[in-house]
Design a protein around this nucleic acid. Sequence first.
DNA 1: TATAATATATTACGATCATCATATTATAAA
DNA 2: TTTATAATATGATGATCGTAATATATTATA
Lengths: 193, 193
Amino acid sequence: MITIPYPKGHKIKVRNKIVESAAQAFRTNGIQDVSVPFIMKGAGLTHGGFYSHFNNKEQLVAEACRYAISDTIALLQKVADEENHPPPIHTVIDYYLSPYHRDNTEMGCILPALSGEISRSSEEVRQVYTHELERMIAFISNLAEIDASKGSALFSTMVGSLTLARSVNDPELSATLLSSGKQYAKELVKTLT
Amino acid sequence: MITIPYPKGHKIKVRNKIVESAAQAFRTNGIQDVSVPFIMKGAGLTHGGFYSHFNNKEQLVAEACRYAISDTIALLQKVADEENHPPPIHTVIDYYLSPYHRDNTEMGCILPALSGEISRSSEEVRQVYTHELERMIAFISNLAEIDASKGSALFSTMVGSLTLARSVNDPELSATLLSSGKQYAKELVKTLT
DNA sequence: TATAATATATTACGATCATCATATTATAAA
DNA sequence: TTTATAATATGATGATCGTAATATATTATA
């Protein structure tokens, strides 16, 4: 009676591809600068089918943010597990404030790229963003073995340094922002009460 | 022979009003979300005359950034001069990471609001932005009596804390981001080498 | 193979954008 | 008061956006 015209799970897979495409595009070009047709093309589709997957662009923004931040936490966890010599939090700080992470925004943390725009987004999007940021701060605090208050200051330093390092034109200033951010972040972990 | 139909300095005054209108609008709503007609309306004009003042929107963005950051440095200088009891840098940190500054973006520092978008702007805009950020870091370093490297870490912490505090939905987390940012920024000034 | 149902593509709509061409207004000088 | 011209307004253009309606393509089942 009931026929299933496409393979089971097909739509979910396509939907995930759209979210992945959006997450990558948003990190590179912001939210407002990325159009629905562009996102759909990135997922190998045309724009028409978009609204059979999402109610509107805002809903996709929320899902893409959740996906991107979860993805970054998982990546940082992997980075922390890789090296055993320095404290794991040092490895994560070094990665987060590396030239590689600065220069490859499409694969990197979404927070420095989008926090400004998120402040002006819908409550739905901010709700998701808040929850994921809480998870990120918990992850960082746990890794550094500090409380959440200190952890939020640590992560703020990391985000601020990366944000500014990406915004400037001068390679030397950008390098200074990264390295001084690294140094202070590490000292913050052990020095401050 | 040569007649001057409008009062001397009239056009410059109007041009400045456009830049002020843009600076305020960009801080509140970002660059891409603010249209030329909207900016012109904010200056009491219609959109048509825009291109007799500026070659394009990008040029206005650069000028508005320069204006806004200079304006903020001047404001912070005033804040520093107001109170004499605590070290001036503490007064500035307290102001920068206050709920008032977080909640009144249209009058506040442009850097947390726009750094993400600036990363994806033209070289012309990034050039101006870089120069003004250098001035800001010099101002902060001088006020805190620390070197520019440490000053850039300090300012990164301030920017990161304010950016994240503005992006989240939860008042408690936002307050934590502000207060822990304040605390560690102050400790950074005196503690770290 | 034919059918039914669903996923995707094509096309269209109204809005808004940056930009530009042209018309109108305002005012200093004659 | 008239005139010349700079400053501003009006209106238009082509592009692109988010969104929706409709047509086509796809494939598990009968």
